[in-house]
Amino acid sequence: MSVYQRPVHLFWWLERRAYVLFVLRELSSVFVAWFVVFLLLLVNAISDGAASYQRFLDWSGQWWMVAINVLAMLFVLLHVVTWFGLAPRAMAIKVRGSRVPAKQIVAAHYLAWLVLSAAVAWLVVR
């Protein structure tokens, strides 16, 4: 019997908006990795001394570095929103026998995020 098999295009993820969003979400990991590189360069500069730290500041202040980091920030925020949004579907948490509503799980994630961010910011700029 001859059947018709629809071909899969190389850019299949352009077919639906949800697929595009999915691919962007997955690509956020590249910017997470970029952040690790950036952080390690900062750590290296700090441990090398004040002069080296100043060089890092000058380097990270160039317009193209700021542009890269703004782009990275957008992707990281996409990661945050999608990650927290999907979290309640991967975990079924029960308190005293009843399921915790998804909204509360998401809210707890954002709360933890705010508290941690505030703590880190305080530690850095204090």
Binding site: R16, A18, Y19, F22, E26, L86, R89
Partner: peptide, 17 residues
């Protein structure tokens, strides 16, 4: 990879993802 479209199109609200 948790694309999530299976759940979006499910007519019965099953949430396979």
């Amino acid at each position: 990879t948790f694309v999530g479209e299976c759940s979006a199109v499910c007519p019965k609200g099953v949430d396979p993802a």
